[in-house]
Design a protein around this nucleic acid. Structure first.
Lengths: 141, 141
DNA sequence: ATATAAAAGGATATTTTTATCTTTTTATAT
DNA sequence: ATATAAAAAGATAAAAATATCCTTTTATAT
């Protein structure tokens, strides 16, 4: 469902949302150990997310990555779109460009609608809500 | 959601289920034109599906690919599993091996359950039912 | 028997995704 | 000022997915 990169990004961003802020920056090695993602790959990924402004970072001694309080109000869907591009997600599951509710592909009713529903959920919940669940031990990373 | 190969396979199999049988075999070129999939790639894909017995084929003049009546009772899920391997589909969306309903990852409730529901639908409908809808113009390829 | 038309098989090419490594820049502590 | 620790940038490598082409096998029609 998600690409490997998207999975890594979700884990890292949830980690940062839960455990970082402007005063608690986190380095690549700490993050990569805690979410079990290869450090060099994660470095590239976070570098891009930082360039796009989805996460924040400072260079130099004592620097690291963190989530601004503002960005903690973004959704997982925002993140996926940042990683995989805007459109992909609502495309026809069979790749047809003519597929729509009035002219549905063979899988439209079974798959497309459920997909949209899932996306709505991914859009309607902000990162800080996930973080709260993780802090409370309701879910984990 | 589906790999390119899986999409091609679904289209081809639905085409064959709708328009072929033992007496109406279909060649690569006809199939590839109708579902708009590159012929050489499709050839390899159908070759594999045929070797696995998911579709049927005969070589030589007048030969081609077709779906046996028996195989028309398979599901899209059966096909996906044939193409992408058995497990993948029910794996944790974040890739965690410990994720389960009692120890859920951060996305478990939002995504996993909806995913399972979708898979159930993909399992509960047989190819011939899709074919009927396509024949009736209710859906298209 | 021979020619023909089809899939099967095998080799290769291209692109994308995933992953690693090295050098450069930058901020901080000393 | 200098050393240090961190991300940023750039180059490259490895693996997987996607795509194409050529040869071989096989069944049928003539």
């Amino acid at each position: 469902m998600f690409s490997q990169s998207a999975k890594y990004a979700i884990l890292a961003v949830l980690y940062l949302t839960t455990y970082s802020d402007k005063e608690r920056k986190k380095g690549i090695s700490e993050i990569s150990e805690n979410i079990d993602v290869p450090a060099p790959f994660l470095a590239k990924l976070l570098q891009e997310l930082s360039k796009k402004g989805f996460i924040n970072s400072t260079k130099g001694r004592g620097g690291g990555f963190y989530m601004s309080e503002e960005n903690k109000n973004l959704s997982i869907l925002d993140l996926i779109e940042e990683i995989e591009g805007k459109k992909k997600l609502t495309n026809c599951v069979l790749g047809s460009s003519h597929c729509n509710p009035n002219h549905p592909c063979a899988l439209h009713d079974l798959v497309y609608d459920k997909n949209i529903e899932m996306l709505k959920h991914l859009k309607g919940k902000v990162l800080s809500e996930y973080a709260k669940e993780i802090e409370n031990g309701v879910s984990f990373l």
